[in-house]
């Protein structure tokens, strides 16, 4: 019966990928910093998921499983090349990510908010995106990142303190204009 189960899991993974792909790409971008590198990571995650599909347990969350695959790929294989290419850092530049067209004030604020998150150190950035953008619980985020629950909490506490201060300062600057 193992083969039957594997084939079913294959099908579940294959059918689920198109639905989950945009989120995997978005998370890949927050890790890699450019759309092109996000394409590479998301593609590699899709291929790895198809390859390991027989190990997916039907009834558990496919999205969480795929996020974990993407994160593992980034940590174990892709980050070192990206970091080497960037001279030690994965720099995230706004111009690489979104077009510089001016928009309404609300869009401008959203850009500031998103870039503030993307400029957090990688450990905080990935945790913030998983919890506040992707909506994962602390426990799910700990599982995806393969870190203790307490580490998720401390990363979020540090990130919230940084972001809170930044948003308040920018809000005051806007109010003053």
């Amino acid at each position: 019966m193992k083969l039957w189960r594997n084939n079913n899991a294959q099908q579940v993974v294959r059918e689920g990928i198109p639905v989950i792909f945009p989120r995997i790409w978005r998370y890949s971008l927050t890790l890699t910093g450019t759309p092109e590198r996000a394409d590479d990571l998301a593609q590699a995650a899709v291929l790895r998921a198809l390859e390991k599909a027989g190990k997916f347990e039907i009834g558990t969350r496919l999205d969480r499983w795929m996020f974990r695959i993407a994160h593992n790929l980034w940590v174990s294989e892709i980050r070192k090349n990206t970091v080497r290419a960037g001279g030690g850092l994965v720099a995230i530049e706004e111009a690489d990510i979104i077009s510089p067209e001016p928009g309404p004030e609300a869009v401008a604020i959203n850009r500031e908010v998103m870039m503030a998150v993307l400029h957090l150190p990688e450990a905080q950035r990935s945790t913030v995106v998983l919890v506040y953008v992707e909506g994962y619980s602390y426990r799910d985020a700990a599982m995806i990142l393969d870190i203790p629950l307490g580490t998720v909490m401390s990363r979020l506490a540090t990130a919230r303190a940084t972001l809170g201060q930044k948003f308040r300062e920018e809000g005051q600057a806007r109010d003053a204009r």
Binding site: Q10, L50, N110, V117, V133
Partner: peptide, 30 residues
């Protein structure tokens, strides 16, 4: 108050990436 941030705004801000519009690679045939 110092730890409070608008998390809904953070979530909404990532819509700017337009991830839904990114073309998905063709999956290899099973």
């Amino acid at each position: 108050a110092a730890l409070t941030v608008d998390t809904a705004r953070i979530a909404a801000s990532f819509d700017l990436l337009k991830a839904d519009e990114r073309p998905m690679p063709k999956l290899p045939e099973p």
